[in-house]
Amino acid sequence: MNLLSLCFKPFGRDSSSNSDSKFESFVGVSKERKDGLLSYRDVGRYGSGEFSMAVVQANQVIEDQSQIESGPFGTFVGVYDGHGGPEAARFVCDHLFRHFQAISAETHRVVTSETIQRAFCATEEGFTNLVSELWSTRPQMATVGSCCLVGVICQQTLFVANLGDSRVVLGKKVGNTGGVAAIQLSTEHNANLEVIRHELNNLHPNDPQIVVLKHGVWRVKGIIQVSRSIGDAYMKHARFNREPISAKFRLPEPMDMPILSANPTIISHPLHPNDSFLVFASDGLWEHLSNEKVVDIVHNNPRAETDDHKVLIFFPELIFCLVLAYY
């Protein structure tokens, strides 16, 4: 966990980016210092505070994306865990916030669960249209998808929207004891969870093979673990579940309804003084560390001069650390 120390460094200052009159955007892992597979940087200020980041690249092609956007509405954060290729995560990173921004403008910057829901829906529709446009030349795009974990902080309320198996955990101070409790805020959509298998069976009562135990892992139709995502058009639209996509993605029976969903689970959480920090992470982290262990690591590695600030840490893969402090 030495990587965490990189995220708890003092921040650089950038007075030019401390403005609510425009949107500030910090996307992906560009303009970083590199040391082998390690990339990191002190990013500086955003609309409500400061943040830094560090990434260890695990694959030759990075399938995951992340972003922070600040503006008059508050702060938007996103972690996009791609699978099958990088295209879906990149598309989400390029379009989800733009849809959210446009829809928020329609409601005079009033953020609601419906605002976020509509942004997800527009993003899914856009990616499906792209798959359709490229079907004759790049049919494999139908098998690319991305989990999406989004947080929106608006007027001391945190909205969390999730598709897939990423997770956000709150570190909450426990009275005057100096301890911090770990509180999971999001719901995961992974067929290994009994509640998700039950949900899928209820949605597909006439399909005894809707979830299949394969090599010790429960998978939707024996193919994919997550039950919700952006993309994965081959599991949502019958017209994409056919040749020329690979046989391993094609279903043996006709698809009469979508198998996967792009409908996120959304919750709202009023932020309180005892809410110390948030950890946004993909399954790459939670497969190895418990909620309590991660919260303990963050709590025991305080950043200089930010002990009283709120901190958000994002892990879009096993080892990715992005710290966001706000006042």
Results as ranks from 00 to 15, higher is better:
315 F>S: 15
288 H>V: 05
72 P>M: 04
72 P>C: 06
227 S>N: 06
61 V>K: 08
159 F>R: 01
207 D>I: 07
138 R>C: 04
51 F>R: 01
218 W>G: 00
130 L>I: 11
22 K>A: 15
200 L>M: 15
201 N>S: 11
23 F>V: 05
24 E>T: 13
323 V>L: 06
101 Q>W: 10
24 E>M: 04
178 G>V: 07
260 L>R: 12
14 D>V: 06
1 M>T: 09
58 A>P: 00
187 T>P: 03
223 I>S: 03
205 P>Q: 04
187 T>L: 09
179 G>P: 02
140 Q>L: 06
297 I>V: 06
128 T>I: 07
106 E>F: 08
323 V>K: 04
135 W>M: 00
52 S>R: 02
297 I>N: 04
319 I>R: 13
265 T>R: 07
318 L>H: 15
35 D>P: 00
188 E>N: 08
25 S>K: 10
199 E>N: 06
16 S>F: 15
57 Q>V: 04
56 V>A: 07
305 E>V: 09
71 G>R: 03
22 K>V: 15
58 A>N: 10
105 A>W: 00
286 W>M: 01
7 C>H: 01
218 W>T: 00
269 H>M: 02
309 H>G: 04
220 V>F: 11
290 S>V: 14
221 K>I: 01
115 T>Q: 02
326 Y>D: 12
156 Q>P: 00
129 N>M: 07
45 R>L: 10
253 E>P: 00
66 S>I: 09
275 D>H: 12
275 D>F: 08
207 D>H: 03
264 P>D: 09
278 L>E: 11
190 N>D: 13
127 F>L: 09
10 P>A: 07
275 D>N: 09
116 I>S: 10
276 S>H: 14
252 P>R: 10
304 A>G: 02
19 S>F: 04
121 C>V: 13
188 E>W: 02
30 S>Q: 06
50 E>D: 08
217 V>I: 15
79 V>H: 06
269 H>L: 03
151 G>A: 12
283 D>H: 02
199 E>H: 10
29 V>F: 14
261 S>H: 11
246 S>C: 10
124 E>H: 11
143 T>L: 02
9 K>I: 12
222 G>L: 05
18 N>Y: 05
177 T>N: 09
10 P>R: 05
323 V>A: 15
168 V>Y: 01
315 F>K: 03
84 G>F: 05
206 N>V: 04
77 V>P: 01
181 A>I: 00
53 M>N: 06
46 Y>F: 15
213 L>A: 04
49 G>Y: 06
251 L>Q: 10
19 S>D: 15
175 G>V: 00
209 Q>Y: 14
290 S>E: 13
156 Q>C: 02
255 M>H: 03
152 V>I: 12
159 F>H: 03
94 D>R: 07
9 K>G: 11
100 F>P: 08
148 C>F: 10
296 D>W: 09
90 R>S: 05
123 T>K: 01
285 L>E: 05
327 Y>S: 14
12 G>W: 01
210 I>A: 07
233 A>Q: 12
24 E>D: 06
